[in-house]
Simulated assay, not measured.
Amino acid sequence: MAEINPSAENIREMLTEALARLRKANEEYFELLERGLSSSPLPIADQAKQFCSFMQRNASATFDFGDKLVQARDVQDALKLQSEFFQGQMQALTDQARSMGESAMKAATGAFTPKN
């Protein structure tokens, strides 16, 4: 029977490996989704691609946060990382909402513009 050694370093190593596998699976998922959207004849495919790009960036930021959190040495370090991550995600959400709003306005304006 294998001996279980729950040292902090072993736990960090296991979490790092798990995060790497999850990151790879996430990348494969978004590649598949992107291929599907590229071949889509739907008129909202461009907006869906933009939304997919935002989701991909947010997921990547979350994995980066996980990588940093695994290396945190104490609770204070972890809380600092959490605060920085939260602030970054709120800024990203604001930027993404602005961009999606602008895209929606352009699409709406184009839909109601008379064609000659």
Rank of each mutant, 00 (worst) to 15 (best):
Glu13Gly: 05
Phe112Asn: 01
Asn5Leu: 07
Phe51Asn: 06
Gln91Arg: 14
Ala20Thr: 13
Gln76Cys: 01
Val75Trp: 14
Asn116His: 06
Asn5Met: 09
Ser7Leu: 09
Ala111Thr: 00
Glu3Arg: 08
Ser99Gly: 02
Ser83Leu: 12
Ser38Ile: 01
Asp67Ser: 15
Met90Asn: 11
Ala97Lys: 03
Thr62Gly: 12
Gln91Val: 02
Ser53Asn: 05
Glu28Pro: 02
Phe65Ala: 09
Lys106Glu: 00
Arg23Gln: 14
Asn5Glu: 07
Ser83Ala: 13
Ala78Tyr: 08
Met1Lys: 03
Met105Tyr: 08
Gln96Lys: 01
Phe51Ser: 08
Gln50Cys: 02
Glu102Val: 05
Lys106Met: 00
Phe86Gln: 15
Lys68Arg: 15
Ser40Tyr: 05
Glu102Phe: 09
Leu37Gly: 07
Leu22Trp: 06
Leu81Arg: 13
Gln96Cys: 01
Phe85Met: 12
Val75Asp: 07
Leu81His: 08
Ser39Pro: 00
Ser39Met: 11
Glu3Tyr: 10
Ala25Leu: 12
Gln87Ile: 07
Phe63Leu: 14
Gly110Phe: 00
Leu22Val: 03
Asn116Leu: 06
Met1Phe: 12
Tyr29Lys: 05
Ser38Thr: 04
Glu27Leu: 02
Ala78Asp: 06
Ala8Met: 02
Ser53His: 14
Lys49Ile: 01
Leu81Phe: 15
Val70Ala: 15
Glu13Arg: 13
